[in-house]
Each structure stands twice: as C-alpha cells, then as structure tokens.
C-alpha cells in the first residue's frame, strides 16, 4: 500500500510517497528527506532530541506518524539560520555555552523556540526549566541552556517591539 502525503518543510513544499505507513516524522526527515539535523535519541518520546515544530508547535517527531501529518508545516533545525546569520536562539546557545557534545542541541533549540512562542515562561528561570523538562542533556549543560533561553526571549521580544514601531 503506498500513500502520498504533502508537507511544507522549512518553507519548501514536499510531496512524499510512503511505501510503508510505519514511518515516523523523525525517520522521514532523517532517512528520506536528507535532513539529519533532527536527532534520534531514545525514539520513545523520553529525551526530546527529535523535537521539531509542526504547525508552529513543538512535538516529539519520533512519536508522530508521518502519514497522519499530511498537509502540515514542519520546521527543523535546518530551517532556522538565514545563510550565515543564526537564529537568535541559536546565537544565544553559542553565547551561553548551552551545549557540550551537541547531540541534544537541535532538539533543545527547537523546544526553546516552541517555549518562547507559547509565552508561558515570562522570563522566570524556574518556569523555563519546568517547560524544558522534555529535553534531556546528558552533558548537563542545563545552566547554559536556561541562560540562553532567557537571553533569546529578551532578544526576540525587543525585535518584535522594533518591528511594531
């Protein structure tokens, strides 16, 4: 049984023919669409390394059936930078040492973008830690991650104010 689905991935319309409905969004991105920036950690929704935005919301791509997401808009880590210019969250992770080995980092950054857009942390480090608890960092870079998100949140809010002015 083959199944054709349409996705917009990092702004680009893609039509994918699935020869097998078992493929998850994570495996579709990594194995079939040449987007290996999204990482496979536990593959069971426990580590957050596979976090991407689907229709603007952060989810675990390992627990999403690609066939079920027909028509969705997906943003991965590859879709953030504009040429050499990093996304403010990426830049903040670099500035604050928000990683060591880097394996969880794409998931951390996508999750951080989702968190900032959701707007429930209000610059409170405790709320940031709580709302980032779905992203595990084996190197223990949590302090830098929290600081990076605090700064990126400020940078993005200032950018929005400038845009509005």
């Amino acid at each position: 049984m083959s199944l054709s689905i349409s996705l917009t991935i990092n702004g680009q319309a893609r039509t994918v023919v699935l020869d097998d409905p078992r493929v998850t969004l994570l495996d579709l991105l990594r194995e079939r669409l040449d987007l290996p920036g999204t990482k496979k950690g536990c593959d069971r929704g426990q580590c957050g390394a596979c976090t991407v935005l689907v229709d603007g919301r952060r989810i675990n791509s390992c627990l999403a059936l690609a066939a079920s997401l027909d028509g969705a808009e997906v943003t991965t880590i590859e879709g953030l930078a504009e040429g050499e210019i990093l996304h403010p969250v990426q830049a903040a992770f670099v500035a604050h040492d928000g990683f060591q080995c880097g394996y969880c980092t794409p998931g951390q950054i996508m999750s951080a973008i989702g968190l900032i857009q959701e707007g429930h942390a209000n610059g409170d480090p405790e709320r940031i830690r709580e709302l980032m608890s779905g992203n595990i960092c084996r190197c223990g870079a949590y302090q830098g991650i929290t600081e990076a998100i605090l700064e990126a949140q400020k940078t993005l809010a200032e950018g929005n104010r400038r845009d509005a002015a």
Binding site: R58, I59, N60, L63, S111, G134
Partner: peptide
C-alpha cells in the same frame, strides 16, 4: 503530566 512537547500532541 509528561513534557511540553507531549502535551502539545
């Protein structure tokens, strides 16, 4: 319950 990513889904 769960994580922010899981609650979104």
């Amino acid at each position: 319950g769960a994580s922010a990513q899981l609650r979104n889904a």
